Simulated assay, not measured.
Amino acid sequence: MESSTPVSFSLSQRVLHWGTALLVFFNLLFADGIEEWNRAIRRTGSATAEQVAGANIHAYVGIAILILVALRLILRFTSGVPAAPPEEPALFRLGAKIAHVALYLLLIAMPLTGIGAYYLGNGQAGDVHADVLKVLLWIVVIAHVLGALVHQFYWKTNVLRRMTVG
C-alpha cells in the first residue's frame, strides 16, 4: 500500500463503482421479476418458468453486486481513496463518511437478505430486504448523488472528475 493519498480513483475503482451503480439501479428499478415470483409463490406455492427466470435475473444481479462491492472494498483498503477536497466543510465531510459506510453496509446487506429470502426461503429476510433496506438504499443513493452534484456545481470541486475520467 502506498503511503501517499491518491489524487484520483484508479481505473479499476472507477469501473467497479459505475458497474455497481448500474447493477444497483437495474435491480432497484426493475424488480418486477422477483416481485411476480414472490406473489406467485405466496398465492399458489409455485411459479412459472418465466417468473423463475425473472427472479433469477434479479438474484444474479444481486450476487454480482455483492461480488463487485467485495472487490471495491479490497481496492479501497489496498489502494486508498482520494482525500476530501478542502472546499468541503467538516460537517459535510463527516456526513460523506457516514453515507459511504451506510452505502457499503446496505450494498452488502441487500444481497445477503435477498439470498436469505430467495434461496433459503426466509420470509423475514425478504421483508427486511424489500420493505426496509430498499427504502434506506434509495435514501442513501439519492444523498450520494446530491452530494456529488453539490461538489460539482456549488463547491466546484473535482469530485465527479475523480470518479469519471480520473
Rank of each mutant, 00 (worst) to 15 (best):
A59P: 00
H129I: 01
L71G: 05
A47V: 00
L146M: 13
H100L: 10
W138E: 06
L68E: 03
V15K: 09
S4H: 09
E88Q: 15
H129C: 02
A109F: 08
A130Q: 11
I139D: 05
E35V: 05
G54M: 01
Y118S: 02
Q51E: 06
L23K: 03
K134H: 13
H100A: 09
M110G: 07
R72G: 02
Q124E: 11
D127T: 14
V150H: 05
R93M: 10
L112T: 06
F25W: 12
L16S: 09
W37V: 00
L28Y: 07
L94I: 14
G166H: 12
G121Q: 09
L105V: 14
V140C: 05
H58I: 03
V141G: 07
D127W: 14
G126S: 05
K97L: 10
A59T: 04
G62L: 07
A31K: 07
N122G: 01
V141T: 13
R42H: 04
V52P: 00
V132Y: 13
A130Y: 07
Q152P: 02
A148D: 06
I115P: 05
A117Q: 08
Y119P: 00
D32V: 00
N38M: 02
N158L: 12
F30L: 10
T48I: 00
G121E: 10
H100N: 15
V101F: 14
A96V: 15
W37S: 00
P86R: 15
T44E: 09
L136A: 15
P111C: 04
V7Q: 13
A40W: 01
K97T: 11
A90R: 15
T44K: 03
A40Q: 01
S10E: 03
R72H: 08
N158H: 13
E87G: 04
G45L: 03
H129F: 08
E88C: 06
L136R: 08
E35L: 07
L112P: 08
L133Q: 04
V165T: 14
V145G: 10
L136V: 02
H17I: 00
